[in-house]
Amino acid sequence: MTENIVVTSGKGGVGKTTTSASIAVGLAKRGKKVAVIDFDVGLRNLDLIMGCERRVVYDFVNVIHNECALKQALIKDKRFENLYVLAASQTRDKDALTQDGVQRVLEELAAEEFDFVICDSPAGIEKGAFLAMYFADRAIVVVNPEVSSVRDSDRILGLLSSKTKRAEAGNGKVQEHLLLTRYNPARVATGDMMSIGDVEEILGIKVVGVIPESEGVLAASNSGVPVILDDTSNAGQAYEDAVARILGDEREMRFTEAPKKGFFQRVFGG
């Protein structure tokens, strides 16, 4: 049984692609057969984050237009042999995607016995985002602890419960997970940033993971290595936890408290 997971947010720049890459790698690390698809046609980035940008010959749009076989377009990850990337086309726009085409690709992946297909949604609520979420069984809604991101996520949660195949067919709703990224406990403590509780209260669902703001994320993106593979970074470990929770494990939230200042720091400042 293949599960389609959409990673979406509404707002841009909150960490959808970073999340898609890390979740895909995290699942693959646990032995799952995973494909991760970039739906951001025209502004593709997933291939960069996954570090396979120089191996893209055919892309998602080629497959949809029957210009190549799915097998030719799936790029095998160098680190995990059960992980594949389907890049977006840079020279086309979102109209190159069709609902029938997306459905056919997802069905082919299901026939190939993939355990998970991660659909990396573009920002916005237009065609690309709509098609990324339409066939989803689960959704990871990426949200930053700030008001505009929270509002956009609220909008997306509304669409997930009405504009998806599951919602239309009435056979169970899309399972929703909230993933809080760029969380800075110190700024939450000073009241600058919304807390986990604030976000959960507004959106009415529990977070499946909290990814702390981390320098590791930028470095990982620039080097084409998903941050989850960086054991030394808090963000990487937090993604590791999130993947475990998505698979049903119970784990304590980490990195959600501001580091306590020691006695000397309190006395002398720091």
Binding site: Y58, N62, E67, C68, T91, R92
Partner: peptide
């Protein structure tokens, strides 16, 4: 402009 002719290597 996207060429109407096949631009992809495969075709």
């Amino acid at each position: 402009a996207p060429p109407p002719a096949p631009s992809r290597p495969k075709v």
